[in-house]
């Protein structure tokens, strides 16, 4: 008798859990869908960082002797700096519009864990800015005569690095919400925090180009990514609450 009761209780609990999870998944899906549609319909939201990326990387050869061996020496650092600055540029659109018309406040008041919803918004922002930057940086690396295995490492480091930039950037964007000239302050706040990612990212590409092993650096980057994934949504939630009140 006890066994039957126990199995029924477990069945109820699992059922409730599944119901709760599907509900949570549905809400997250809707938030993600809305953000992606919004950012991809406004042409300039996701194209701006890409234009900046291309422009910045074409400045480098113009400002030095563009012979292949010179350029390939400089390629990893210029592409990584360009990717970092363009992801910084794209942070403006992360919460600003929702903050101004009040949707962000409503997101705080729906009965679901807010940090998960904010994580969804950051994920949508990465999909519309970080990922295109990573994909576009491959042809740009070719343009700067980067050797083949350097390009593969560049792709890996950017694939792991740009989410970290979006995650840390989300905290800065949340803090600078009700400041008029928030953009300038954003760069001042975030660049010191971006430096470890830049060092590990560009450094791994240099190491790969000169034939050294890069698994250690990629592991470090991945560890930073996981650390940010866990802590940043909570910190962003706290900073948005500060800006909301």
């Amino acid at each position: 008798m006890l066994m039957r009761q126990l199995t029924r209780w477990i069945y109820l609990k699992v059922n409730l859990l599944v119901f709760k999870l599907t509900e949570l998944f549905r809400v997250c899906f809707h938030v993600l869908k809305r953000d992606l549609i919004l950012s991809f319909t406004q042409k300039f939201d996701w194209l701006n960082p890409l234009f900046f990326l291309v422009l910045f990387t074409s400045l480098i050869p113009l400002s030095m002797d563009p012979s292949p061996e010179n350029l390939s020496k400089v390629a990893p650092s210029s592409i990584w700096t360009a990717a970092l600055l363009s992801s910084l540029l794209s942070l403006e659109t992360l919460f600003k519009r929702d903050f101004e018309d009040g949707t962000l406040e409503q997101l705080y008041l729906i009965p679901y864990p807010t940090s998960l919803l904010i994580f969804m918004k950051i994920f949508a922002h990465w999909l519309s800015s970080g990922l295109p930057i990573t994909l576009l940086s491959i042809p740009l690396a070719l343009m700067l005569f980067m050797p083949a295995d350097g390009i593969i490492t560049l792709f890996y480091t950017l694939l792991i690095g740009t989410p970290i930039l979006s995650l840390i950037g989300a905290i800065g964007a949340a803090l600078a919400l009700n400041l008029q000239r928030g953009g300038l302050l954003l760069a001042l706040l975030l660049l010191p925090l971006y430096i470890p990612v830049l060092i590990l990212g560009a450094g791994s590409v240099y190491a790969a180009v000169s034939g050294l092993a890069i698994s250690g650096q990629l592991a470090l980057l991945a560890a930073m990514l996981i650390g940010c994934l866990l802590t940043t949504p909570l910190m962003t939630m706290a900073s948005i609450r500060i800006s909301l009140t």
Binding site: L193, P196, I199, L220, I242
Partner: peptide, 25 residues
């Protein structure tokens, strides 16, 4: 004060990471 406090906390977490990556660099 609250906003700067959050940045200080993130910064202090970042100091060892910066030291590690600068040494490696």
């Amino acid at each position: 004060a609250k906003a700067a406090g959050i940045l200080a906390i993130i910064g202090v977490v970042n100091i060892p990471i910066i030291k590690l990556s600068v040494n490696w660099w």
